[in-house]
Every structure is written in structure tokens, then in C-alpha cells.
């Protein structure tokens, strides 16, 4: 039976509505800008509706629409300036964030306790786009490795290695934020002590 345009719109809207907030959040992490994020989702929705006849009902709409979002981002929003120096695997192998200690609160536990929402968001948004995409899809949005591989059109092994490196970069950034904050607080306290009569 041929679907009318109104039926198609209704079906599309029903599938899209539960994903809109996730699409917006992901767009925001990718573009790092609310206005661009809204535009990116709007463009995604337009493309998805245009291609909706080719979407096989009953399959994974969430992964399908996220794939359109990430492709649109890469084609239209991702600029060369987003490319940064990415440390090699060998360099990152040397960096170990979590080190077990014998007892008591570890510096890592203290760090986790001191992190704010802004720290986390800043660290995610500072990731190079290849890693950011995988981190957002898997760690934030809860896609499986297989789904992330399909969304980004890359092999699952690449998802795993980008996720591993993304995690290490995140840990490094968060560690640096915490250390800088602690240093700054210590200096402030020392300054206050000197000024006190």
C-alpha cells in the first residue's frame, strides 16, 4: 500500500521525536556551538525525511539518523582547523592516568570528586573530531561499537582504537584541569596567608 505524504510525515515524526534531544546534544558536542547545533539537526532532519522512503521500517532508526547527522557534520561543518596534533599510540602508551595505590584516597579519586560538568564538557569538546565522535556516540549516547562503526562508516577495530585513545586524551585533559585548579587554589591560599597581618 502506498503511503500518503501525511502518513509518511506522521511515521517520521514518531520515530524522530524520541531522538531529538540526543541529536541536539550530539550536534552540540560536535559543533561546540548552540546555533550551529540547531542548524545541523535541522539539516539532518531535512535529509532524513528526504531519504525516509529508503529507510527499512523496523530497523535501527536511531543509528540511521545519527549516521545522517555525523555525515552532515563531516561534510558541512568540519573544517580543517579542527584537525589538531594527535599524539601517537606510542606516546599515549606512556601516559597512565589511573595508577593503583596501596590504600586511602588516590589522587585519581580526588580528581573525580573535584570535576565539574563544565570540566567534562570542555574535555570532550577539546578532543580531535575523530575521537570526539566515537566518545560521544559510545560513552555518552550508549551506542554499541558495532552501531558506532556503522554510523561513522569505519571498521569496528577503528572504533575501538579511537575510543581507547579518546579516553586517554580525556583523562589527560581532566587530570590537567584538576592539577591547574589545585595549583591555582594553593597559590591563592599562599597569597592570602602572606597578606594577612
Amino acid at each position: 500500500m502506498v503511503e500518503t505524504k501525511e502518513e509518511k510525515k506522521r511515521d517520521f515524526q514518531e520515530l524522530l521525536d524520541p531522538e531529538l534531544a540526543s541529536l541536539f546534544r550530539t550536534a552540540l558536542r560536535m559543533t561546540r556551538n548552540r546555533e550551529d547545533a540547531e542548524d545541523l539537526v535541522q539539516e539532518t532532519v531535512t535529509k532524513a525525511f528526504a531519504a525516509f522512503d529508503r529507510f527499512e521500517r523496523g530497523t535501527n532508526f536511531r543509528a540511521w539518523v545519527f549516521r545522517i547527522l555525523t555525515n552532515t557534520y563531516i561534510n558541512n561543518y568540519y573544517r580543517v582547523r579542527d584537525r589538531r596534533n594527535i599524539p601517537s599510540l606510542e606516546e599515549m602508551e606512556e601516559e597512565s592516568f589511573f595508577q593503583p595505590v596501596a590504600e586511602g584516597i588516590t589522587p585519581e579519586e580526588a580528581l573525580l570528586n573535584s570535576l565539574t560538568k563544565d570540566d567534562i564538557i570542555e574535555a570532550i569538546e577539546a578532543l580531535p573530531v575523530e575521537f570526539r565522535a566515537v566518545v560521544v556516540l559510545v560513552l555518552v549516547e550508549g551506542f554499541s561499537y558495532k552501531e558506532a562503526a556503522e554510523i561513522l562508516d569505519i571498521p569496528m577495530g577503528t572504533v575501538m582504537s579511537r575510543l581507547w585513545r579518546g579516553r586517554k586524551l580525556l583523562q589527560k585533559s581532566l587530570w590537567e584541569y584538576s592539577t591547574q585548579r589545585n595549583d591555582s587554589e594553593r597559590k591563592n591560599q599562599e597569597g592570602w596567608t602572606v597578606k594577612k597581618p
Binding site: 540526543s22 541536539f24 546534544r25 552540540l28 558536542r29 589511573f98 593503583p100 595505590v101 588516590t106 585519581e108 579519586e109 573525580l112 570535576l115 560538568k117 567534562i120 564538557i121 570532550i124 566518545v135 560521544v136 560513552l139 555518552v140 549516547e141 550508549g142 580525556l170 583523562q171 581532566l174
Partner: peptide
């Protein structure tokens, strides 16, 4: 210990990343 820390960090990322 490593598992707990990684798990806590992962939860923080998920919670804060979805909090916009």
C-alpha cells in the same frame, strides 16, 4: 581499583554529557 575509577569516570562522562 582501576575498574572502579574507570567506571566512575565513564558514569561522569555519560551523566554530564547528557545533561544539556
Amino acid at each position: 581499583q582501576v575498574y572502579q575509577l574507570e567506571n566512575n569516570l565513564q558514569n561522569l562522562i555519560r551523566l554530564n554529557g547528557r545533561n544539556d
